[in-house]
Amino acid sequence: MIEVQGLSKRFGDNQVLTDISAVFEQGKVNQIIGMSGSGKSVLTKCMVGLHRPEEGRVLYNGRSFHDMNDEEKRQVRQRIGMLFQGSALFDSLTVLENVIFPLRMFGAMPKSEMEDRARECLKLVRIQDKDDLFPSQISGGMQKRVGIARAIAMEPKYLFCDEPNSGLDPQTAILIDDLIKELTEEYNTTTIVVTHDMNSVMETGENIIFIHQGRKWWQGSRQELLNSDNTELNEFIYAGSLMRQVKEAMSRRS
């Protein structure tokens, strides 16, 4: 479980996050939603320690991350898997080497076992026979899946996904959503997905946090999301025609 308490972050005079408190539950797909520029990615980066917040704490199983010493932080980070918006695969390493990388840095297994584990992770994300290709030689969707394989190689306790569906076709986006859901169940991870894709929210979101203008505006389940009367939240979720049609259908049925 990850808990955020009173977290605020600013860059110079620009206050990006203000007094955010939230609980991200283990074994669930927790989603942070909000418009572009609302502070979702900054919140995630504060949670994984890439940014230091001016105020507030991030607790990993009850322990404040920013108060830990370097060794303790390293140990927590080795239990974090992260899928970046742009995949962030290492250009000069092949697909297999990218997945092996965290195992090579921290694992204590022989090379053949590392390769077996990496291939197992690639199989989980449905990538085979691409071991020797470089990231530039595979599609964006495949890059995301290799990114997921790398993120789960160390069997993480915490899985962060920053806009995993951005730039992908609908079918690949659904595949990525399914993978995230499956992996959360299989590894019982605390999964945090940053997204503004409402299809993804309706598909996988179990604990949803809506960030608006750098503040936590709303938190609840998928069902509560559809029934919410929060104006800003409704403006966000019903901005697309598909969601408006869902709402109209629900109104007619009721």
């Binding site: 932080k73 980070r77 962030a88 250009d91 840095m105 962060f160």
Partner: peptide, 17 residues
């Protein structure tokens, strides 16, 4: 610099490297 703008350095940091 390329690794920085492609978030590869962030990826290393998050892994604990």
């Amino acid at each position: 610099g390329s690794m920085r703008v492609k978030e590869q350095i962030d990826a290393l940091d998050i892994m604990g490297v």
